[in-house]
Design a protein around this nucleic acid. Structure first.
Lengths: 138, 138
DNA sequence: ATCAGTGCAAAAGCTTTGCAGCGGT
DNA sequence: ACCGCTGCAAAGCTTTTGCACTGAT
């Protein structure tokens, strides 16, 4: 059993298992959000008996412990997951290759400010998705 | 057959039918985006033989003709549809009652500008979703 | 030894599709 | 009369769940 994984998981109050270690590693490796199936396909190469439902359960667990974050793009019906960096983050999504490029900085506070001045809505969060073509696809 | 519907649909190059008229009316009536099932339930009251798949086909047709616009919220796995007002529009979504309140004005051009200055991404569109509690639910 | 975690299979929820018959022009 | 539109049923795709077994502490 990997001590690093073990320490990480126990610090979040959950058990370390081979599958969870795997999912954590795979989330760590991927530079942009991935679907449960993406994770599953990569995980199955290393651990052929792993099951898709375990991946879903693990991802859901990670989200509930704030280890990961789930989001859904308007373009697809699949949810995607990424490690929770605890930073404010948005992506540009390429319509062709589906690549997700993170925004380096985001002037969203302007929007929240403007909105809260104009309504009684209590704003907790916001999602911004920029859609277009990445440099390689345009 | 309703002449108004007929004229509208032929101007978009598609046939007018009872079901399409109904869907158009129901989209017109609703002040915020609705799911296919919402439309179906309302439609079934007036036209009991109507079928869910027809609603889906009609909504998809409307979207392909730019009569309607489809979007998916991160909170739900259902798609929602609304008439295409051809205006830039975003919503605040209440976490509790799921009410969608349109933003009166949106400083998004700031974002697109900032983003396009910082990357080679060709921006075609963006989606903004504000999440929180509406005045009644907070 | 205990109890949480997992694999497997089945089901659930939303959406799409094939096909035969109906309906609009 | 023609051909597109619809209803119905079945399937598809993503995600969830029940259950018995496995594995971590």
């Amino acid at each position: 059993m990997d001590k690093t994984h073990q320490a990480f998981f126990t610090s979040h109050g959950i058990k370390s298992t081979i599958q969870r270690n795997l999912v954590l590693d795979l989330l760590q490796e991927s530079e942009s959000p991935v679907s449960a199936e993406d994770i599953y396909l990569k995980a199955a190469l290393l651990q052929p008996t792993v099951n898709l439902s375990t991946i879903y359960r693990t991802l859901e667990l990670f989200c509930s412990k704030n280890i990961a974050v789930k989001s859904t793009l308007s373009e697809s019906k699949k949810a995607v997951y990424e490690l929770n960096t605890h930073t404010h983050k948005h992506y540009m999504v390429c319509l062709k290759c589906k690549r997700m490029v993170p925004l380096t900085n985001c002037p969203c506070s302007l929007i929240e400010k403007a909105v809260s001045e104009n309504s009684d809505f209590e704003i907790l969060d916001h999602k911004l998705e920029i859609v277009g073509y990445c440099p390689e696809c345009k």
